[in-house]
C-alpha cells in the first residue's frame, strides 16, 4: 500500500505557468509525508487533485497512483481517499454518532452492528457516550477526533490532511497530532500532510518536501 505522485504539476485557471515544479513523491504505508510552502503555492490544490475535488478550470499533468492503481480517472467517491481539513466539518444536521455512521461502510449491516461499530470508534476517540450530542456542543479537540474517526470508518486507502491542526491551541495540538498519526500508523495508511507549520511537519516524523 502506498501513495505515489509522479511529475505532478498544476496550473491555475487562466495561468500559463504551473503553480510549482513537477512534483514526485512516495508515501509508504503508515508513514506521513509533509508538504510545506507559502500560502497560495497550491498545497491545498494538490490535495484537491489527489482527492478528486479539483475546482473547474485547473489543469493537471502527471500521475497519481494508489497501491499501483491510477486514481485520477476515478470520481472522488470511488477513490477511497480520506480528507481532514482545518475545520472538522462535522455535518450540523446530524448527531455526532450519525456523523460517524455516515462514514461507516455499507458492508456492516444491521442496526445493532452499525451502532456498535460507531460506539467503538467513539470510545477510541475518547468520546464514549457522546453519540447523541450535537456536534456544535463539542470542543475543538473533540470535533477533530470525531472527524478523524468518521474518515477512518470509511476505511480509506490513503489520508490527506489539509492543515488540520492549525485551528487548535498549542496544548491540544500535540495530542491531536499524535492521535491522528498513531491511528494512521496502526492501520498502515499512507498520509500526505500539507502545512505551513514546521512543528506539524517535524511531529509527522517523515520526509518533508518544500514546494
Amino acid at each position: 500500500m502506498s501513495l505515489d505522485l509522479t511529475r505532478v504539476t498544476l496550473t491555475a485557471p487562466g495561468a500559463s505557468v504551473p503553480l510549482f515544479a513537477p512534483l514526485s513523491l512516495h508515501v509508504p504505508p503508515g508513514k506521513v509525508v509533509s508538504v510545506m510552502g507559502a500560502s497560495g503555492i497550491g498545497k491545498s490544490t494538490l490535495l484537491d487533485l489527489i482527492g478528486g475535488h479539483l475546482a473547474p478550470g485547473f489543469r493537471a499533468s502527471g500521475q497519481v497512483t494508489l497501491n499501483g492503481v491510477d486514481v485520477l480517472a476515478e470520481p472522488a467517491e470511488a477513490r477511497r481517499i480520506g480528507l481532514l481539513f482545518q475545520d472538522a466539518l462535522l455535518f450540523g444536521h446530524l448527531s455526532v454518532g450519525d456523523n460517524l455512521a455516515f462514514g461507516l461502510g455499507r458492508q456492516i449491516r444491521g442496526r445493532a452492528a452499525r451502532r456498535a461499530a460507531v460506539e467503538t470508534a467513539l470510545a477510541q476517540a475518547g468520546l464514549a457516550g457522546m453519540a447523541g450530542r450535537d456536534p456544535a456542543t463539542l470542543s475543538g479537540g473533540q470535533r477533530a477526533r470525531a472527524a478523524l474517526m468518521r474518515a477512518l470508518l470509511a476505511e480509506p486507502l490513503a489520508l490527506l490532511l489539509d492543515e488540520p491542526f492549525s485551528r487548535l491551541d498549542a496544548g491540544l495540538r500535540d495530542d491531536i497530532r499524535n492521535f491522528v498519526f498513531a491511528h494512521a500508523r496502526a492501520r498502515a495508511i499512507p498520509v500526505l500532510l500539507v502545512t505551513h507549520d514546521a512543528g506539524d511537519a517535524r511531529a509527522a516524523g517523515g520526509p518533508i518536501i518544500e514546494l
Partner: peptide, 19 residues
C-alpha cells in the same frame, strides 16, 4: 453553508455528488 468542503468530505467518504 460550506458547500464545497462538505461535498469534498462526503465524496471522500464514498458518496457520489447526488448522494
Amino acid at each position: 453553508l460550506p458547500v464545497r468542503a462538505e461535498l469534498a468530505v462526503g465524496r471522500a467518504l464514498g458518496y457520489g455528488r447526488a448522494a
